[in-house]
Amino acid sequence: MLFNLLAPLADQFAVFNLFRYLTFRTGGATLTALLVAFVLGPRLISWLKTKQGKGQPIRTDGPKTHLSKQGTPTMGGFLILIGLVVSVLLWADLSSGYVWAVTVVTLGFGLIGFADDYLKVSKVNPKGVPGKLKLLLEVVVATGAVGWIVAITTPEHSTALAIPFFKDLLIQLGWFFVPVAVFVIVGAGNAVNLTDGLDGLAIVPVMIAAGAFGIIVYLVGNFRFADYLQIHHVAGAGELAVFCGALVGAGLGFLWFNAPPAMVFMGDTGSLALGGALGAIAVAVKHELVLAIVGGLFVLETVSVVVQVISFKLTGKRVFRMAPLHHHFEQKGWSEPTVVIRFWIIAVVLALVGLATLKLR
């Protein structure tokens, strides 16, 4: 909004020229989202405690140390979403279709997650929304967003899949690109959801991935940088750097209250929304495969669940002591802070590897 209102006045008032700079608005979005989260956090957490009573149900078959968390409210994802959306509306170019498409995915997945959290809390049932219905709703939202992204992207790139490490390799998938992109968005949403099991475990890797993609979208959206790095230029996609900045800021604000011992849990309201947002950003800037590297921690967590389920159904034996993967290490005796910090380190390393693909072409 500030860009649309103030940038046109830059010729009359030189100070407003700042709003033409994407880097300035990205920084502003980060700080705004952080401030909103700091201001609203205590009030929102107090309200959630009042409304939820016993808080999020804790799995009785999980690590026994988690039973002490009974009574902690969930739906803390609201804090992230409020800070994120307010910041994006304030600092982004609201004429950008990419910004709106990613925001729609974020809010749509957040609404699905809220329904799941609400049922868990109101019915004191950890299952929430039936899995098939939840997946169907996610596919509907993702399909609409992918169609939107395809419509506003240049024909050369709209339905193409870019391959990392190759500067000119674009695989034209035609309309088969739609289910592939939907899989990326839905998969990312659920992968982050599976990772959200320990205090601070999911939000920091999300911020790391968002920071990495903030760099990627800025470079992809800038013709000169894209040409220098020999990556595919997506006109207008650079505006998503503001979204990534806002996501980092909102995540930092949430982490203030989610740091061990957590005052509030993210819940599906946040985890589904943030994962979906990362997936949608990757689709918009043609870096779907790079997301699998940058968000490799989420992939590992998801694969551990898949392997566990398949192994148990086929052989009756479990590969891991408990899935997702972070619970396996807890069951091996690792303390929760040890698991969380080591997973953060893995997330940083994978993000650096993902960023390296920009030059290794």
Rank of each mutant, 00 (worst) to 15 (best):
A284H: 01
G249Q: 04
V305S: 12
I293Q: 08
C244K: 04
G296L: 12
Y218Q: 12
A209W: 06
V283L: 11
A241F: 02
G270I: 10
V306A: 15
F298M: 08
I293F: 06
T302N: 12
V220L: 05
A262T: 02
E239V: 04
A273Q: 12
L278K: 14
E288N: 05
V305D: 05
A280E: 14
F213Q: 10
F254G: 05
A246C: 02
S271M: 00
E239A: 00
L252G: 14
F312T: 00
H232S: 14
L252V: 13
P261D: 12
K313A: 02
G279T: 09
L314R: 15
G316A: 05
L291I: 13
I216T: 14
A250Q: 01
L297A: 12
M322K: 03
L300V: 13
Y218N: 11
V299P: 02
I310Y: 12
M263L: 12
K317A: 08
A241G: 00
P324T: 03
G236C: 08
G267R: 04
V242N: 09
A277K: 02
Y228P: 00
L289Q: 04
V319Q: 10
V306Y: 13
A212S: 15
L325A: 05
F257I: 03
A250G: 07
V242W: 03
V303D: 07
K313H: 03
L314N: 08
L291W: 12
G221A: 07
L252E: 01
S311N: 11
G214H: 13
S304V: 11
Q230L: 12
A323T: 15
A262M: 03
F225P: 00
T302L: 13
G214W: 10
G249P: 09
A273W: 09
G276W: 02
N222Q: 07
A277T: 15
I310G: 01
H326W: 06
H328Y: 11
G296H: 11
A246F: 06
E330Y: 07
V283W: 08
W256Y: 15
F257N: 01
H328V: 07
K317S: 12
L300M: 15
G251V: 00
G214Y: 07
R224W: 10
L274M: 14
A241N: 08
R321Q: 15
K313R: 15
F329V: 05
A323G: 05
A280K: 13
N258G: 02
G221K: 05
L325K: 03
L314C: 04
I216E: 01
C244R: 01
D268Y: 04
A246S: 03
G296N: 14
V264E: 09
Q230V: 04
A280H: 14
K286I: 07
V220R: 04
I215D: 07
F312L: 13
T269F: 09
G275Q: 14
T269D: 10
A241I: 03
P261C: 08
G249N: 04
W256Q: 01
V294C: 06
L219E: 03
A237N: 10
H327F: 14
L272D: 07
H326M: 00
G316V: 01
E301L: 13
F225D: 14
K313C: 06
G221V: 01
P260E: 06
A210M: 15
A262Q: 10
D268A: 07
L314V: 13
G316S: 05
H326I: 08
V242E: 08
E239Y: 00
